[in-house]
């Protein structure tokens, strides 16, 4: 064997998957943090308003959190572009489809639909960022003086108002379904893409990933439903 090879990591199929795994698993951490913050919405309205808004202020002003959020924006963009490019390459790899193919015989549904689920997530992320992130940063969310935390932007009221629309709640619940399926396969797959596999720990990790997928998506989905139901009274 001779001749050194200098192809960059990102040009190779495995390199692209390594970045999918890294960004995907980082986004899983992000989701866990995001969820923990959002669960404050379940507190009684009087408490939740100030606490949630103070939390939102911290999340948009603290320099360390800011750094993390840039990493998150980057990860989402990179993950989406990389993932869609991989999916496009995969299509090229089989230009002629089978007349008959029994896909369900040997692979799970989620694993076969990662790109579709990811695209749904991308659409959701755009809607979600427009509704809350854009409004918080560039829109005019009303400011009020809270007793404990000084001036606060009232993201809480913006949020609770948004979820008085049933169709808006529906978009969120369906999208959380997409998150659940995406992670049902993605969590375990991400580790394999990084080359991590072990006869004992891999099955545990896969199991944990499935639990994570269910718990995170269900808890996220409960929030809009809860806000909608409380708005009815």
């Amino acid at each position: 064997m001779s001749g050194k090879t200098k192809t960059g990591l990102i040009k190779s199929s495995i390199g692209k998957k390594v970045f999918m795994g890294l960004t995907g698993l980082f986004l899983c951490l992000f989701l866990a943090g995001h969820l923990a913050g959002n669960l404050q919405l379940l507190l009684p309205a009087e408490v939740a308003r100030d606490q949630f808004n103070a939390y939102a202020k911290f999340m948009t002003t603290n320099p360390a959190v800011k750094l993390l959020s840039y990493l998150t924006y980057f990860s989402i963009l990179f993950h989406a572009v990389d993932g869609l490019y991989l999916a496009w390459q995969n299509k090229q790899a089989r230009p002629q489809a089978y007349y008959k193919k029994d896909d369900a015989a040997n692979a799970g549904w989620a694993s076969r639909n990662m790109a579709v689920l990811g695209t749904l997530l991308l659409v959701f992320i755009v809607i979600h960022m427009k509704s809350f992130w854009y409004e918080m940063h560039f829109g005019n969310v009303p400011v009020y003086a809270s007793i404990e935390h000084g001036e606060l932007k009232d993201l809480y009221t913006l949020t609770t108002t948004a979820f008085t629309e049933w169709w808006y709640v529906l978009i969120y619940v369906l999208s959380m379904g997409a998150v659940g399926f995406h992670l049902w396969h993605g969590f375990g797959s991400g580790f394999k893409s990084l080359g991590i596999s072990h006869p004992v720990y891999t099955p545990l990790l896969n199991g944990f990933g499935k639990g994570f997928a269910v718990v995170v998506s269900v808890l996220f989905a409960i929030l809009p439903v809860y806000l909608f139901l409380t708005s009815l009274n």
Binding site: T5, T7, K11, I14, N90, A93, G108, S111, H185
Partner: peptide, 20 residues
């Protein structure tokens, strides 16, 4: 490295770990 480069050159797709 060389085997993976050749594999990519041949136009095989990328792995999604489906297990099929």
């Amino acid at each position: 490295i060389r085997m993976v480069e050749q594999m990519d050159k041949e136009g095989f797709g990328n792995c999604t770990n489906t297990g099929a």
